[in-house]
Design a protein around this nucleic acid. Structure first.
Lengths: 193, 193
DNA sequence: CGCGACGTTGATTTGCCTCAACGATTGTGG
DNA sequence: CCACAATCGTTGAGGCAAATCAACGTCGCG
């Protein structure tokens, strides 16, 4: 029995039993990707869950004027997917792309449903993953509608201190919802205090 | 066996069996509320799921300057709750309040968990409710970060045509994230074309 | 080594907010 | 059921946060 990082991850919530682990392992697809690799494109259906073992990915939308809007980052031990496209079997509006050379594990859509049917433990764990993502996103919505750009930046630094050292300010700006020029002004304002 | 509106609602997804219906019915709390009734306040833990039979509710946050930011509306056959507060057992940042005299059904937190444990059908249905709410919210985030106020307003009208006749423009403005004065300008701009 | 991404600065513009005021509607308490 | 109060929708003047466009030195990667 091989203990993959996903098994370890789930053991925090509802540890899988041996049968579930066997089924899971037989369905995992492992990938090593270089920088700037796309694993989801606008127009494609998101047909897999992705778990990050090592590296960093971003999920973003491209607006009308061609500008990128980052929705989510995923580093070690994070899940990333467009759940809307996944569950509704619709083409996605989003892109998922590596920001660093990355090592990922994927479970394809058919296999996810197969696992749901064959292991209620798996079912519960995935539900928790989605619930947590949802709760994170709700916090983000609340913050976006009730804070200034500067507050959002400071919150980002506090919440993801390790991330802010790894990714460029361009990526951070795109996540907190300002241009990189304006983030530069914010940063100056902060350090000059 | 009493067929409550919730049972009918679930029958769209994974119809409950008789046992599940009995358990569910025994745990439902029915309430009739007048206008402006609060069912959740900031600082309280959200300890129930609420299903709207008749009427209209809003969930909102109050910002630093005292202004309301609407996060979600719920009308007939919609669910509303602060899932973050509910699952993490944390005090909520949010308020839930009726916009009209309303008829609601509630399931208290302990009973939700009891139902999870006693009926996998219930478990699956609630998971779908949360997934759908999540997917809606993701669309909202995407739209907020990549559209102008006018586009957001037009999208709101298209998506919730019946709602926009029922609630005031003040509430709509608060939902799409502008002041009611500015919404007024947007509306003028649109009709003058 | 060279080229493209990065971070920064400045000038200008714009989308949206703030505050103030007004009549029209709606809701409610007596 | 009516009268008063509150909320609503709108308009205008003025202000600010953030975008846009342009330019430039620096750095890391291929």
């Amino acid at each position: 029995m091989i203990i993959t990082p996903i098994v370890t991850y789930f053991s925090k919530y509802w540890p899988l039993d041996e049968t579930a682990i066997e089924i899971l392992n037989s369905r995992i697809v492992e990938k090593k990707l270089k920088r700037k690799a796309l694993i989801l494109k606008e127009g494609q259906e998101c047909d897999h869950f992705t778990f990050v073992v090592k590296g960093c990915l971003k999920m973003y939308k491209i607006g009308k004027k061609g500008n990128q809007h980052n929705l989510q980052f995923a580093t070690e031990n994070n899940w990333i997917a467009d759940y809307g496209s996944f569950y509704n079997h619709e083409p996605s509006d989003l892109y998922i792309e590596t920001l660093e050379p990355s090592h990922i594990l994927q479970i394809r859509k058919n296999d996810v449903f197969h696992l749901y049917d064959n292991s209620s433990l798996f079912d519960r764990n995935i539900r928790i993953v989605i619930e947590n993502t949802f709760i994170e996103q709700q916090k983000r919505v609340l913050q976006t509608i009730s804070s200034t750009a500067e507050e959002r930046y400071l919150y980002f630094l506090k919440k993801y201190p390790n991330l802010s050292n790894r990714i460029s300010n361009v990526q951070i700006a795109s996540y907190i919802g300002v241009t990189s020029e304006f983030l530069s002004i914010i940063r100056k304002r902060i350090t000059s205090i």
